[in-house]
Structures are given as structure tokens and as C-alpha cells.
């Protein structure tokens, strides 16, 4: 365990990080027709990772999420752009979204929409950008 950090903060954040991430997930999926969405969920997740970085240190965060955040941003942007461009293939205007009802196992009748994929892109981009900024400032002290 890295020294110099608060033991209370560390133990509390072990639980709270998951609560925050779960709430972020909730916000992400509820975002289509109620308050929430990719941007807020992304900031929330980044907040959870920041909490981890505060309680432990940046190395821990890197171990937990062993990706290059710049690449995550790029993947997110690519997904968001791709969803918008996908409409062009169907002869629809740019950014036009589609939705439909599907019978999924366990969930039953579920409304699925391409806006969710767009939101996933936004989510990844926001997490990537926020973490890149935080790590840039936090890394050298």
C-alpha cells in the first residue's frame, strides 16, 4: 500500500468508487429520455478514477485502467463520428438516428437506439479527455 495517503480515504474509496461507477452506468443508460447521458456519465467515471488517484496514487489508476487515455478519446470520437456517418449509408441526413424495439433475453421488450452508440462515443471521449488532462497535471510534481 502506498504510503502518505489517508487510510480512511483509501478504505472508503474502495467502496465509493464502485458506487460512483454504478451511478455513472445508470446515468449513461437513462440518458436518452431523462436527465443523464454520455457526457455526465463520462465525467462521473472520470471523477471515480480521480478519487482513486487521490486515495492511492496515479500509478494505481494506471494499473486499474491500463489503457492510453488519448487512444480512448480517439476511439470515442471515432464511434461518435461513425454513428453520425452511418446515417449517410442509408441515404438519411447526417446524424439521423434510428431506434427499434427488440425482445432480449432477461430484459424482455427493450428499446434500442443508435443514439446510445453515439453516447458511448461521447462517454469514452469525455473519460479520455478528462483523464488525459488530470494525468498531465498530476504526473509531474
Amino acid at each position: 500500500m502506498p504510503k502518505g495517503s489517508d487510510i480512511f480515504l483509501q478504505n472508503v474509496s474502495k467502496i465509493v468508487v464502485f458506487l460512483v461507477l454504478a451511478f455513472a452506468l445508470y446515468l449513461f443508460f437513462t440518458g436518452h429520455s431523462s436527465p443523464g447521458g454520455g457526457f455526465i456519465a463520462g465525467l462521473m467515471s472520470a471523477g471515480a478514477l480521480l478519487l482513486l488517484a487521490l486515495a492511492y496514487d496515479i500509478e494505481t489508476v494506471r494499473k486499474v485502467v491500463p489503457f492510453d487515455f488519448k487512444l480512448i478519446t480517439a476511439i470515442g470520437l471515432l464511434i461518435a463520428l461513425g454513428t453520425g456517418t452511418g446515417a449517410l449509408l442509408f441515404g438519411q441526413p447526417f446524424l439521423k438516428h434510428a431506434f427499434g424495439h427488440f425482445d432480449l433475453p432477461l430484459l424482455g421488450d427493450t428499446e434500442l437506439h443508435t443514439a446510445l452508440i453515439f453516447d458511448l462515443g461521447v462517454y469514452l471521449a469525455v473519460v479520455g479527455v478528462t483523464m488525459t488532462i488530470l494525468l498531465t497535471i498530476g504526473e509531474d510534481r
Binding site: F39, V129, T130, I133, T136, I137
Partner: peptide, 20 residues
């Protein structure tokens, strides 16, 4: 406002990193 907040979030963050 939401769009503008997102943009300003980015710019403020960039400005801060740059100032640092």
C-alpha cells in the same frame, strides 16, 4: 448551455494545463 459548458470545460482545462 450544455454545449457551451462542454466547450468551456475543455478550454478552461487546456488553459490551466498551459498556465502550469
Amino acid at each position: 448551455i450544455l454545449t457551451s459548458i462542454v466547450i468551456n470545460f475543455g478550454i478552461t482545462a487546456f488553459f490551466l494545463v498551459l498556465s502550469y
